[in-house]
């Protein structure tokens, strides 16, 4: 299905957000946080979230900031 991943069009075979993260190489230890369609999605909820076509996924990590 087609989704938007960090602002870019992407195609994925993942069924859940956790699967998507796994397929991108982010295991449970990875220092990332997620949001779906503008709403925060906690780490514990990623497994339950069924991806839908057109979902806008954000995957963020720690970065320098002012």
């Amino acid at each position: 299905m087609n989704i938007k991943l960090n602002g870019a069009e992407a195609e994925t075979g993942a069924k859940t957000l956790k699967q998507l993260c796994d397929m991108l190489g982010y295991d449970l230890e990875a220092k990332i946080a997620t949001a779906v369609n503008g709403e925060f999605m906690a780490k514990a909820e990623r497994d339950n979230y069924q991806l839908a076509s057109g979902d806008e996924i954000e995957i963020v990590a720690p970065r320098q900031g002012g």
Binding site: N6, A61, P62
Partner: peptide, 10 residues
């Protein structure tokens, strides 16, 4: 120290 969250390329 201040930090941010930003999109990360896979």
């Amino acid at each position: 120290v201040t930090v941010s969250v930003r999109r990360e390329a896979a």
